[in-house]
């Protein structure tokens, strides 16, 4: 078994299990909080973009374009380093808050596009059917459009959540400890890049696989009722 230790020293990795566990927990926690933020932002921005009001529409479109045309890393820097320069808060954002806000704002833009497409995919005929029985705007949204949009939206939203989880590794640039940061700890403590990053890669793959299973399950459940 010695040759394995040569290539991948699992005994060293075993010593760092607490770090990796904390890293995974942090990655999941950061992703979860940014996901909630992104879903709220995404829904509002999608509705703004579908609205007839040109001001709302412009603001929403500008936000999405700005996010889509700049790298997440620079968004993290701008929010973490620059927002404190604005006299909004009486204190600095800490790294974790800055990272989560940046991730949420970033994912929110992409999710708004998914949600908008989902709402638009519900055909005009469905709305007219609901109108012809006298439903109000809110009733049409609640009972006809949103339930159908939901089925179209969940699978791509889960895909975007997988991207969010991977993207959360970038908050390590501003010193937030998470899964990738756990790898950095192993690298700096033991100078063993192999053990550090192959393990990190493996952990991300497991998370990815779980998300994939979950997405397949959701697709079957949601698609099942309609086809």
């Amino acid at each position: 078994m010695d040759w394995i230790v040569e290539v991948y020293n699992y005994r060293v990795v075993a010593q760092f299990i607490p770090e990796f566990t904390r890293g995974i927990a942090a990655t999941i926690w950061i992703s979860l909080l940014s996901l909630i933020m992104a879903l709220i932002i995404g829904t509002f921005v999608a509705i703004m973009r579908l609205s007839a009001n040109p001001v709302l529409w412009r603001i929403a479109a500008g936000y999405v374009q700005a996010i889509r045309s700049t790298p997440l890393l620079i968004q993290i820097y701008v929010i973490y380093f620059s927002i404190p320069a604005l006299p909004l808060l009486d204190r600095r954002l800490d790294e974790l808050e800055g990272g989560i806000i940046a991730l949420g704002l970033n994912a929110g833009a992409y999710m708004s596009e998914i949600i908008r497409a989902g709402i638009e995919s519900v055909s005009r005929g469905q709305v007219e059917g609901a109108q012809s029985v006298g439903m109000t705007y809110m009733q049409r949204m609640r009972y006809v459009v949103l339930p159908q949009a939901f089925a179209n939206v969940v699978p791509p939203l889960l895909g975007q959540t997988s991207v969010l989880i991977k993207d959360s590794s970038l908050v390590s640039f501003i010193g937030v400890f998470e899964l990738f940061g756990a790898g950095l700890v192993v690298l700096s403590d033991r100078l063993m890049p192999n053990e550090a990053f192959m393990t990190v890669a493996f952990c991300y793959l497991v998370i990815y696989w779980v998300m994939l299973m979950f997405s397949n399950f959701a697709q079957r459940r949601l698609g099942g009722a309609r086809r």
Partner: peptide, 20 residues
């Protein structure tokens, strides 16, 4: 209009049943 439409039934060429 919503109230008025309660009293006016409409049957469409493509049915427009609620798919879900």
């Amino acid at each position: 209009l919503n109230k008025l439409r309660q009293g006016v039934g409409m049957v469409f060429q493509h049915f427009n049943l609620f798919e879900h």
